Amino acid sequence: MSELGEFLRQRRARIQPSDVGLPELGRRRRVPGLRREEVARLAGVSVDYYVRLEQGRGTGVSAEVLDAVARVLRLDATERGHLHTLARPPRDTYRRTPRRIRPGLRLVLDSMAAPVFVLGRCMDVLAWNAAADAVVGFSELPPRERNMARHAFLAERGGRLYPEFERVAAETVTYLRLDAARYPDDPELAALVAELTAGSPLFAELWARHGVREKTSGRKLLLHPRVGELDFGYETLVPPGEPGLLLVVYTAEPGSATAERLAALTAGTAAAAPAASTAAAAPTAVPA
Rank of each mutant, 00 (worst) to 15 (best):
A271W: 10
A134C: 11
G58W: 07
A288T: 15
E145S: 13
R102M: 02
T97R: 04
V61K: 04
A208E: 10
A113K: 10
T85I: 14
V51G: 01
H151P: 15
R71P: 03
A191Y: 12
E164F: 02
V65H: 10
V39S: 05
D92G: 13
T93C: 14
R209A: 14
S200K: 11
V31K: 01
A180R: 02
L206N: 06
T197S: 14
A270C: 04
M1C: 12
G104S: 13
P89K: 07
D110M: 05
A13P: 14
T85E: 15
H210Q: 12
A273M: 06
A280P: 12
T97K: 08
E145D: 15
E64V: 14
A191Q: 11
E64L: 14
D48L: 02
A169M: 11
L109V: 13
V45I: 15
L141Y: 08
H82T: 09
R177W: 01
G241K: 03
R226S: 12
G44F: 11
F203G: 03
G159I: 01
G199K: 08
T216I: 10
T78Y: 02
E229D: 11
R30K: 07
F7G: 06
R35L: 08
A282E: 13
L189V: 02
R209H: 04
R182T: 09
N147Q: 04
M148K: 04
G81D: 15
P240K: 05
P143F: 05
A131I: 08
D231E: 09
A180Y: 05
R146N: 08
L237M: 14
L245H: 00
A194H: 09
G26K: 05
V238I: 14
A264K: 09
